[in-house]
């Protein structure tokens, strides 16, 4: 046995889970899919006194249409969300990005909420939530709150979640029918974390961009919203868009770092190229690099 000893509880309601988290006073850790937490336990980088397994809480599972959007339960398995037709039809960017999260075997157990709550800077799901304008539903014994995804992430693996709080839903707003998906990921092998990635959605009205939501992953301490690129795209006529100029604006918002996989300089250079290429392809522009 590699992990340090802990108690294990499997509550069957959100209220019960919140009560346990409250009573533990910071000594409890939530386990969802365990695809990140179990390695941390095995390495003893995480040593909770109590493990709170949320897989028995039916209210935290499943995908549902709600007023103005789609709500994904945090304990929904990544593999189930990947097969979900509502998500594929209405939020194709979500489905596209999710296919790059880990492997067949890890998606069979890993959850959407686990990936959202972890806040790994190179992960696809946090950036997708930021790009699409999702909001995170949070509960504790103190009450409930909703936090926009781009205010949820504060640093690498750091979110606004308090130790007694549980993510209870991720709500993605509706995007116009027929909107376009922007997606590119550069990784060493399929299933690996991205060195550089971008995800987004673009809506067109009368030949011009009417709505844009784009975020980078692996390009800073948190998912990074490409605000300058979004602003430059809004209202622009499709045919007159210069993908290279927009890509430069997109990279200007990033703050990548050096690690043993790639340098910050590499990430910026590759990021700018793949952004321009993805945008050209998505908008069917001729001048693709």
């Amino acid at each position: 046995m590699k992990p340090a000893p802990f108690d294990y509880v499997r509550p069957s309601s959100v209220a019960e889970a919140c009560r346990i988290l409250d009573e533990a006073g910071g000594g409890a850790t939530v386990i969802a899919g365990g695809q990140t937490l179990m390695p941390l336990l095995n390495l003893r980088m995480s040593q909770p006194f109590i493990l709170v397994d949320i897989n028995g809480i039916a209210a935290l599972k499943g995908v549902a249409r709600v007023e103005g959007g789609i709500r994904v339960g945090p304990a929904t398995r990544q593999a189930d969300a990947l097969r979900d037709e509502t998500l594929a039809r209405h939020l194709p960017a979500f489905t596209r990005a999710l296919g790059h999260v880990g492997h067949h075997q890890t998606r069979n157990r890993g959850t959407i909420g686990g990936s959202i709550a972890l806040g790994e800077p190179a992960a696809e799901m946090p950036a997708t939530a930021v790009a699409l304008g999702a909001s995170i539903e949070i509960a504790s014994v103190r009450g409930t709150r909703q936090v926009p995804a781009d205010a949820f992430y504060v640093g690498p693996y750091m979110t606004v979640l308090e130790p007694d709080e549980l993510v209870t839903g991720i709500v993605y707003p509706d995007w116009p029918q027929g909107h376009l998906v922007l997606f590119r990921e550069v990784a060493q092998r399929p299933g690996d974390f991205a060195l550089v990635g971008l995800v987004g959605a673009l809506a067109l009205e009368g030949g011009a961009i009417s709505r844009a939501g784009i975020a980078w992953f692996g390009m800073g301490p948190t998912p990074v919203r490409a605000r300058q690129a979004e602003a430059a795209l809004l209202g622009a006529e499709r045919a007159r868009i210069d993908p290279h100029a927009i890509a430069r604006a997109a990279v200007a918002d990033t703050a990548p770092f050096d690690d043993h996989h790639a340098s910050a300089e590499y990430r910026r250079t590759v990021g700018q190229r793949v952004f321009a290429r993805a945008l050209s392809e998505t908008l069917d522009l001729r001048s693709a690099a």
């Binding site: 695809q35 390695p39 095995n42 492997h103 890890t106 157990r109």
Partner: peptide, 25 residues
């Protein structure tokens, strides 16, 4: 025992997953 190599993969209720990243309980 980090979920990376796949040697420990078993089926749980028909789905292939890592037995090193699932607790027996």
């Amino acid at each position: 025992e980090h979920g990376v190599c796949g040697a420990c993969t078993v089926m749980v209720d028909g789905d292939a997953m890592r037995s090193c990243l699932t607790l027996a309980v």
